[in-house]
C-alpha cells in the first residue's frame, strides 16, 4: 500500500575540520544555531581548548609542506578552491538565506567570496616580488630581503557574517604559505563547516586550514597564549578581548593582527597587504667579489 506520509529530511551533521578530517568535538558538547526567526538551523559542535590544541598540532605538521611548496602551486590550489566553491554555490546561498540573508545578498556574498579567492590565488606568486628588495650596503655583500610565512596562525573570523569574513581571513593567510586554525562565526556557523568540505575536496593538504566552531570568549585565551602559534588574528572591536590577546601573545612574541575596522564587503577588504600582515622579512647578506671599483670584501 502506498504511503502518503511526508518524507523526513536527512539533516546534515555540522562537524569541525581538523587535519583534513571531520571529527566531532573532543568535548562532546554542542549548541543550537538559530536565525532571527528563532528557527533551529543545526546542532553545531561547541569546540573546546583540546580541539584547538589538536588543530595546532595538525597545522604545525602541515606547515613545512605547505610553506615549502612552489608559490605558483599554492596559487593553483587557491584557484581550485574557488572552482569548487563555484560548483556548490547553491548550497551556500541556501545556507545564507537560512541565516537571515535575502537571496540577492546571499548571491552577492558567495560571488564575492569566489572572486576573492581568485584574487588571492593570483597574488600567491607575485606579492614576493612587490615586497622584496635589494638593499644597498657599504660592504662587499649582495643584500636582499624577502617575505617568508610566519608559521601557524590562529584566527578568529569576523563574527558578523557567515562566509565572506571567513574566506577573507583565510585566503591571505594561506596564500602567504602559513597554516591556520580558524574559529568560525558563533552565531552563523553553517557556511564555515560547508566551506571546510569545499577545502577538503580541492587539493588543499589536510591541516593547512583547520576550522573550529564554538564560543569566542571561551577559546580566545588559548588562541592567544599557545606557545606553538606564531600569530593571532582578531576581527572584532571588543577592547577587552583585544587587550587580552595582546597580553597573552606577548608570552612568545606572537604577531597580533587586528582587523576591527575592515569592511570585508568593500574593495578595501582585499589587498596584498593582508598577506604581508602575516609575513616575516628575511634579510640575507651574501658575500660577493666586489662592488663597482672596490676590492674583494672577504
Amino acid at each position: 500500500m502506498a504511503t502518503t506520509e511526508k518524507r523526513l529530511e536527512v539533516l546534515k551533521t555540522y562537524k569541525i575540520y581538523i587535519g583534513g578530517q571531520f571529527p566531532r568535538t573532543e568535548s562532546g558538547r554542542y549548541y543550537v544555531a538559530t536565525n532571527s526567526k528563532k528557527e533551529n538551523l543545526a546542532n553545531v559542535c561547541l569546540g573546546s581548548r583540546k580541539d584547538f590544541r589538536d588543530a595546532v598540532v595538525a597545522a604545525r605538521n602541515a606547515f613545512g609542506g605547505w610553506s615549502g611548496r612552489a608559490a605558483f602551486n599554492r596559487g593553483q590550489i587557491l584557484y581550485r578552491i574557488a572552482e569548487m566553491l563555484e560548483g556548490r554555490k547553491t548550497q551556500f546561498i541556501d545556507e545564507l538565506i537560512k541565516q537571515d540573508a535575502t537571496r540577492t545578498q546571499a548571491e552577492n556574498e558567495v560571488n564575492l567570496c569566489i572572486d576573492r579567492l581568485i584574487y588571492y590565488s593570483g597574488w600567491c606568486d607575485k606579492f614576493q616580488q612587490l615586497f622584496s628588495s635589494v638593499n644597498p650596503v657599504a660592504s662587499s655583500h649582495f643584500n636582499f630581503s624577502v617575505p617568508e610565512p610566519t608559521g601557524v596562525v590562529a584566527a578568529i573570523a569576523p563574527q558578523g557574517d557567515s562566509l565572506l569574513g571567513l574566506v577573507s581571513v583565510i585566503a591571505p593567510i594561506i596564500a602567504g604559505g602559513n597554516t591556520c586554525i580558524v574559529l568560525a562565526s558563533a552565531t552563523k556557523p553553517l557556511c564555515a563547516v560547508t566551506f571546510a568540505e569545499v577545502l577538503n575536496s580541492s587539493d588543499l593538504p589536510g591541516g593547512v586550514v583547520n576550522i573550529l566552531t564554538g564560543k569566542v570568549a571561551e577559546l580566545v585565551p588559548y588562541f592567544a597564549d599557545h606557545m606553538d602559534v606564531n600569530a593571532t588574528v582578531f576581527c572584532e572591536a571588543d577592547a577587552a578581548i583585544q587587550k587580552l590577546i595582546k597580553e597573552k601573545s606577548a608570552l612568545n612574541v606572537k604577531r597580533v593582527v587586528l582587523y576591527d575596522k575592515v569592511k570585508w564587503a568593500n574593495a578595501s577588504g582585499q589587498s596584498p597587504y593582508f598577506i604581508m600582515d602575516l609575513q616575516e622579512i628575511k634579510t640575507t647578506w651574501h658575500p660577493i667579489e666586489n662592488i663597482g671599483g672596490a676590492k674583494a670584501g672577504y
Binding site: 590544541r53 597564549d225 606557545m227 606553538d228 608570552l251
Partner: peptide, 8 residues
C-alpha cells in the same frame, strides 16, 4: 597553564 611548543 599554557600549551607548549617544541621550539622551547
Amino acid at each position: 597553564g599554557v600549551y607548549q611548543s617544541p621550539n622551547y
